[in-house]
Structure formats: structure tokens, C-alpha cells
């Protein structure tokens, strides 16, 4: 069942086209990661899907409804975690949840039971009376996830949920999201962490300068775009592009050289022949695909 369906969606801010004719569809129960450099249009697209921003062109359906024309109806079925820690600092943990719960008519015994369940789920039990100002960055993100789940949404929109968090906290949040996926939750995740997308996403779409340049499962994208192995080393030790094994693909980025090939043995042999010190031979990752497709220069 298709829960999100976009056809040629375009959004402009003045002269800047933030989202350019994007078409994508998302099935129920999957985790879809929107990857892209800063300013690629991920947040704008996510906000349009959440009914927060209108589109200038194209068709959008979220759970069969137009998210802009039927904002309240669509929002009632969505849980949203935005990029900023949008918590009311004047209120404590429980009061933040209580106010948000009322938006969804959640109160009384049903509210208390749901809050107890969610705080346990995001490991915040016992912190109900804590002022939100006193929470750490990781706790705030977990509280935001709990708040987004209060209404038992059909779709969870996560806009860069782990940006600025340390690796341990990121792992905790990934574990939380995996548990949600096991329960069949549909998740749309925007991120610029490739590892996050590799760990969580069933499907990945790469946005660049407002355009969806490719999409597919992480494995599909890697196989479709680049050979499966990559050898990475310092450019000062490079014997020159002409000397690489036949059929290999060479990329330069800063002072690093990347040689891609499906034949790992050929790469090992070539390495032995040229005596390169401190090489790094590894499997091609989503990050290599991302950099290949969006370019290695700064997008500012």
C-alpha cells in the first residue's frame, strides 16, 4: 500500500528552487531515507509532506490526502521530529507531553498509560518532572521521538534526528527506531549521515540541488553506481591514473585517491606491485555512491 506519493513536486523560495520536480512513492511499513548535502531540499520536502509548507507545482498524496489542503487530517496521522529541539523550556517533560497530547485529544487514563509506555520505550522513565532545559541533547531527541509517537501515528517523519549527537546516543536512537520498524512503523528519515541510512533504511533517495537524482535500496544503489571494492590511498604515492588495473575507476578528492574495481584480488595485486604504504582496501559504501553522485566539492 502506497502511503506517500509525490509527482513532479516543486517548491521555490523566491528565485531559489529548493525542490525541483521530485517524484517518489513510499510503501507502508518501510523506512525511506532522504540523503543529500546541506541545502539539497530534504527538510523542505519533509515539511511539504508534513503539511507544514505548501508546494508550488506537482501532486502530493499522504495517506491518500493532499497534505496542504487537508493539513489537520494529515497531521493527525503523522508523528514529526523536526531538526530543532522544539521543546517548551518553560515546561517539564510530562507537561511538554501533556500539552502535545491534547492536540490529539489524548488525556486522562489513556494519556498516562501511553506516556508511561513511551517514556520506557525511549529510556526516560523517572524523568517526568525534569525541566526540559536540564535534559542532555540525546535525552531531548528521545523526548521529541516520544512526543511524536504520542498519537500512535501511521507515519513518522524524522528530520536529521541524530545531527550533533555523540556516537553512543546515536546508537541508542537507532535502536529505538529499529524497534519501531519491527512494529511496522513507516518512517521517512532525512539525514546526511550515510551510516544512518545504511543502518536503518529499506530504500534511499539521494537529493541534490532540489532534484532526486537516484533511489533504490542501499545495496542496489551501490551496485548500480560503483564497483564493489575500493582502494583508498594518499595522492603523493599515486603511480598515475594510467597505471591502474584495466577497467578500474579512479576518483580524486583532495589529497586522496580512490580506485574502484569489482575484482578485489586485482586491486590487492596492483597494491603489491606498486608498494603503496598505508592503503585502505574496503567494500564500496553508500558514502562513496553519495560522493560520486553529488560531487566531492562543497555545496555552499
Amino acid at each position: 500500500m502506497t502511503v506517500i506519493d509525490l509527482k513532479n513536486v516543486t517548491r521555490k523560495f523566491g528565485d531559489l528552487t529548493a525542490v525541483r520536480s521530485v517524484s517518489l512513492s513510499m510503501e507502508k511499513g518501510i523506512c525511506y531515507a532522504l540523503l543529500g548535502p546541506n541545502g539539497a531540499g530534504k527538510t523542505t520536502l519533509s515539511k511539504m509532506i508534513g503539511g507544514v509548507l505548501p508546494r508550488h507545482e506537482g501532486e502530493m498524496r499522504v495517506l491518500g490526502m493532499d497534505p496542504w489542503k487537508m493539513q489537520s487530517e494529515v497531521k493527525a496521522h503523522l508523528g514529526v521530529v523536526m531538526q530543532s529541539d522544539a521543546l517548551d523550556d518553560e515546561l517539564n517533560v510530562l507537561e511538554n507531553l501533556r500539552i502535545y497530547g491534547l492536540f490529539f485529544w489524548l488525556k486522562g487514563r489513556a494519556f498516562r498509560e501511553r506516556v508511561a509506555e513511551l517514556l520506557e520505550f525511549v529510556s526516560l522513565t523517572g524523568r517526568e518532572k525534569m525541566p526540559t532545559q536540564a535534559l542532555s541533547g540525546g535525552m531531548k531527541r528521545r523526548l521529541l521521538i516520544a512526543r511524536a509517537l504520542l498519537s500512535d501515528p501511521e507515519i513518522l517523519l524524522l528530520d536529521e534526528p541524530t545531527t550533533g549527537l555523540d556516537p553512543q546516543v546515536r546508537q541508542v536512537i537507532w535502536t529505538t527506531l529499529r524497534k519501531l520498524m519491527e512494529k511496522g512503523m513507516t518512517i521517512l528519515l532525512t539525514t546526511h549521515y550515510m551510516e544512518e541510512a545504511s543502518q536503518l533504511a529499506d530504500r534511499v533517495g539521494i537529493l541534490d540541488q532540489g532534484q532526486l537524482i537516484t533511489e533504490g535500496s542501499p545495496t542496489e544503489l551501490i551496485h548500480r553506481t560503483l564497483p564493489s571494492c575500493v582502494l583508498e590511498f594518499d595522492e603523493r604515492e599515486s603511480p598515475g591514473d594510467a597505471a591502474v588495473p584495466d577497467g578500474s575507476l579512479v576518483e580524486h578528492h583532495g589529497d586522496r585517491v580512490y580506485v574502484f574495481d569489482d575484482d578485489e584480488t586485482a586491486l590487492r595485486n596492483w597494491l603489491g606491485e606498486h608498494g603503496i604504504s598505508a592503503p585502505h582496501l574496503r567494500q564500496t559504501s553508500l558514502e562513496d555512491v553519495f560522493l560520486k553522485l553529488t560531487g566531492r566539492g562543497l555545496h555552499e
Partner: peptide, 10 residues
């Protein structure tokens, strides 16, 4: 950024 709370609520 707290305006997001209201903008995403129904």
C-alpha cells in the same frame, strides 16, 4: 524553533 510544535500539530 518552537513554532514547529504548533506547525506540525493538527
Amino acid at each position: 524553533g518552537t513554532i514547529e510544535v504548533l506547525m506540525t500539530a493538527p
